[in-house]
């Protein structure tokens, strides 16, 4: 069993403080969901845990089984068992998906371990099938020309094959149609075990028809302001976030965010506020 502990995390982007003291504790075997209006720092939290270069931690700590994550490079974090399924994964022209995944799997082999080619191909084929991905996917260039749904599935494919301790899923449901949502949801749910936990960032309650969360955390203005179980999530889905703001006396962050494309049904509720960055 592993433990990921985030304590009083403060994070800035380009000089602006986005996270203002986030506390979270995750164990493997647990699924945590982070909800919250757009622009409150959900994706910032996800990217910071993985070590994205744009985010500067100004205060606080992240510990994975007692080890200081903030001192690790991005690749070390990955090899120690952290995984980020990204909202906008990069495209790598000229590199096939299977070459990429194979290299990533090799990167985490321990001394003396090997990954025979046939074993790799079998596990890749199996994972592709479980995600109902197109046959040619392993031979296409990483994320290049992928549809939005294919990109998301490709992230989950990597998660399945790399077997992290903790996966952070950053809006893995956006841009997925109903069938794809079910497939992705079921695949994530099937990963749940004593060796695997997830932090799921979502706007979309439907994903949670397939992924059964244990804890819900509401993030607003850079802080976790409310925690609970499934009932909390259902209320948010029906009533939005205004009641929480009222209850807790939270003022909207007055700094406007630049709005870009908004995907998913949650867009209608928050169309006037900037998209999560």
């Amino acid at each position: 069993m592993s433990k990921l502990v985030i304590k009083d995390l403060h994070v800035s982007v380009e000089g602006k403080e986005i996270l203002k003291g986030v506390n979270l504790e995750l164990n493997t075997g647990e699924f945590h969901v982070i909800m919250g209006p757009n622009g409150t720092g959900k994706s910032t939290l996800a990217s910071t845990i993985m070590g994205h270069y744009k985010y500067v931690v100004t205060k606080g700590s992240i510990l994975l089984d007692g080890e200081d994550v903030l001192k690790m490079t991005v690749d070390e974090r990955s090899r120690k068992g952290l995984f980020l399924a990204m909202q906008y994964p990069a495209e790598i022209t000229g590199v096939t998906n299977s070459d990429f995944i194979k290299t990533a799997m090799h990167a985490r082999l321990k001394d003396g371990e090997t990954l025979p080619l046939m074993k790799f191909i079998r596990s890749l084929d199996k994972a592709c099938e479980e995600l109902k991905m197109r046959d040619d996917l392993p031979h296409r260039y990483v994320n290049e020309g992928f549809s939005g749904g294919e990109k998301k599935r490709n992230e989950i494919l990597q998660m399945k094959l790399l077997r992290p301790k903790f996966a952070i899923l950053d809006e893995i449901d956006s841009g997925l149609d109903v069938d794809a949502l079910r497939i992705v949801g079921e695949n994530v749910n099937d990963m749940k075990s004593d060796d695997f936990g997830a932090l799921i960032i979502t706007h979309y309650e439907r994903l949670l028809d397939y992924i059964k969360p244990d804890y819900i955390h509401v993030l607003m203005n850079g802080k976790v302001v409310k925690e609970g179980g499934l009932d909390l999530m259902e209320r948010i889905d029906q009533e939005g976030y205004d009641w929480i703001k009222e209850e807790l006396g939270i003022e909207d962050d007055d700094t406007p965010n630049i709005t870009s494309n908004i995907l998913g049904t949650c867009a209608t509720k928050v169309a006037l506020k900037g998209e999560d960055k």
Binding site: M50, G51, H52, Y53, T73, V74, D75, R77, S78, R79, F83, L84, M86, P89, A90, E91, I92, T93, G94, V95, D99, F100, T103, A104, A107, R108, Y141, V142, Q158, L162
Partner: peptide, 26 residues
């Protein structure tokens, strides 16, 4: 962004750079 993506999957910076360059000359 490409470096971050590849490194987030466990590739070292030099492995990631190499992979991007190899893709470039593909």
């Amino acid at each position: 962004e490409q470096l971050f993506y590849l490194m987030s999957r466990g590739l070292t910076e030099s492995q990631a750079t190499e992979m991007i360059v190899m893709g470039f000359i593909e």
